[in-house]
Amino acid sequence: MANLGDRFRDLGRMDTMGSRESGLHRLDPRAKVLATAAFALAVSSFGRYEVAGLLPFMAFPVSLAILGEVPGGYLLKRIGLALPFVLLLGVLNPVLDREVLLQVGPLPITGGWLSFLSMALKLVLTAASAVVLVAITSMDGVCQALERLGMPQVFVVQIGFLHRYTFVLVEEAARMLRARELRSNGHDLTHREFGPLAGHLLLRTWDRAQRIHQAMLARGFEGEVHLLRRPSFGLQDALFLGAWCVAFLVLRLVNLPLLMGTLVSGGAQ
């Protein structure tokens, strides 16, 4: 994970996107989080050989990305980062399952390839929807939504802290690594060096936690965190959530591509 620094710079970029102003950005974060969750549920409920039925679901991330002005290249890059792991687990499918299930012209397609394709498609869909969600809501918005949807406050505050201090600490770690690299003469870091290096970082982290706690105490913190609430769920939010949920349900029950394909190929006959 040598490019972690870059990944975090990306993280900042995404947050900036999240704090922009657009109709989508102004929606209640809860509507967006719930719609994304419904989307994930609908997509993952498709069987292992389903490919065509998944395609219409692309409409969700694609339309949100466009309306929320999330750059396409950026979106693709983020999805690309998430691909390898699942492909690793799925890549054996074509080997393990060689039964021919489909015949497209002269090309026989085995169940393994179908399930592999289905898995890859699901991955692209869910990864895209998660990236788009944060890009049109901001991390803070997502946290607020989680809190109002019943997540424990302490946990939501914890996510906020993590998000906030990741930037500080990653920057500190990057400085330490640069300082080491300048004097390392090209030698790789050994696990023996890891202890002192990461240890110093840990110590500084610990001290910082104490200073933060003091800063919290100085402003009247007494162990309980209070959060400022935002405007409530409106008609627009309900419409957004409702419309997408209905769309997911319909697309889950009716295989749209198959229907259209049948009409087209039927017409051709």
């Binding site: 802290f161 970082l201 982290t205 936690a209 933060i212 919290m216």
Partner: peptide
């Protein structure tokens, strides 16, 4: 509360330190 917040961030940061 702040301690677990920054320690979680530390885990992220420490993952940048790769060793052979």
């Amino acid at each position: 509360i702040p301690l677990m917040g920054v320690l979680a961030a530390f885990v992220f940061a420490a993952q940048m330190i790769n060793f052979s």
